[in-house]
Design a binder for these strands. Structure first.
Length: 277
DNA sequence: CCGGTCACCTGAGTGC
DNA sequence: TGCACTCAGGTGACCG
C-alpha cells in the first residue's frame, strides 16, 4: 500500500468527500478486518458525524463528533471508495468489499466502502481515551515532513541496522515504505546497506531534504499507482517519476551502471552499487 | 534483546 | 490453455 503519499491522498480525498456526513449504518462482510473490540465497532460509529479525516504515518483517522475515531491501516491493498448501500439484487457487495458505512447528510445517501483484496488491512474504532492509548502504544516516530535535520540525524544514527531498514522502521520515522525508501536513498546517493549509525549530519540533512521533496512531489501527483492502489478520487501518477524502485535490470540514470537488486530487511530493493555510497 | 524468517491473503505475470 | 511458481506497496509473531 499505501505509503505516506498514498495515505495522505486518501485522507484528503475522504476529508473532502465525507467530512460533515453522518454514519447512519455499518456493515462488515469479513470479520477479521475489524481489529478493535468487534462488539463496540458499530456502536461507536453509528449516529456520529465525521468531523475531519487525516493521516498519522500510514494510518488514516476519521475524527467523530463524539471524540471517538475510526482508524484504518490499508497495508498492501486496502482502499476506500463510494458506492451504493449493499444488500439488494441491484446493489450487491462489490468485489473484495469488506465493510460498508452508510453516510447521510447530503441530498443523496452514499456508502463508503472499505475494499481489500489481500485482507491484510485493518479497521479500528476507539473512544477518545482508547484512541489516545492505542496511538501511544503504537509509538510512531515523527512525520518526516515535520522533521528537522538535527532530529532526523539523531533518530537515524542512534539505530542499529542498515540505513534502508531504519528508514522503514515506523518507530523511527513514520510513513516511509519500500518505494519511497528506495527513491529517497537513490536521490541522496546513499547506499541502502550501509550502517544507519554511520550517517553523518551532512548526509542526514541531504537525505531528509530528498525525502521531503520526493514525498511532496508524490503527494502532488496523488501517490504512486502500482498494482491496484487508487485514492477515492482516482489513481496517482508518481510511478512515472520513479528512478530506482522497480527498475531492476535497467541502468542507473545518473551514472549508467546497472542497478542491483537485493533483499534488504526482507524487502526487494533496487539501488545503484556505483553511485550510491 | 536482536536480526532473520515466515505468516497473513489474493491476483497478476511468467515460463514450461 | 493450463498449471506451477514467483512476486507484490506492510506489519507482527515467532525462532534461534
Amino acid at each position: 500500500m499505501p505509503e505516506l503519499p498514498e495515505a495522505e491522498t486518501m485522507a484528503r480525498d475522504l476529508n473532502k468527500r465525507i467530512a460533515g456526513l453522518t454514519i447512519a449504518d455499518v456493515l462488515v462482510s469479513f470479520d477479521k478486518i475489524v481489529a478493535s473490540d468487534p462488539a463496540s465497532f458499530a456502536p461507536l460509529l453509528k449516529g456520529r458525524s465525521i468531523q475531519r479525516v487525516g493521516r498519522i504515518g500510514k494510518w488514516i483517522k476519521a475524527d467523530l463528533d463524539s471524540g471517538a475515531a475510526l482508524l484504518a491501516h490499508l497495508k498492501m491493498t486496502g482502499q476506500f471508495f463510494l458506492g451504493e448501500w449493499p444488500g439488494s439484487v441491484s446493489s450487491p457487495w462489490p468485489p473484495h468489499a469488506r465493510a460498508a458505512f452508510l453516510l447521510t447528510g447530503q441530498a443523496e445517501d452514499q456508502t463508503l466502502y472499505y475494499r481489500d483484496i489481500r485482507k491484510f488491512g485493518r479497521l479500528r474504532a476507539f473512544s477518545r481515551d482508547d484512541l489516545r492509548d492505542f496511538l501511544s502504544d503504537l509509538a510512531l516516530g515523527p512525520d518526516p515532513l515535520e522533521l528537522g535535520p538535527g532530529e532526523f540525524h539523531r533518530l537515524v544514527s542512534s539505530k542499529k541496522g542498515r540505513l534502508k531498514q531504519v528508514l522503514m522502521d515506523q518507530s523511527v520515522v513514520s510513513g516511509l515504505g519500500n518505494i519511497y525508501a528506495d527513491e529517497s536513498l537513490f536521490a541522496a546517493s546513499l547506499s541502502p546497506v550501509r550502517p544507519a549509525s554511520a550517517l553523518t549530519p551532512g548526509e542526514a540533512e541531504t537525505l531528509l531534504a530528498r525525502i521531503k521533496s520526493i514525498l511532496l512531489d508524490a503527494i502532488e501527483l496523488r501517490g504512486s499507482t502500482v498494482g491496484n492502489y487508487q485514492g477515492l478520487d482516482g489513481p496517482g501518477s508518481y510511478q512515472d517519476r520513479h528512478k530506482a524502485y522497480g527498475k531492476s535490470g535497467q541502468d542507473c540514470p545518473r551514472c549508467g551502471n546497472p542497478f542491483a537488486r537485493a533483499i534488504i530487511a526482507g524487502r526487494s530493493s533496487v539501488h545503484c552499487p556505483v553511485c550510491q555510497k
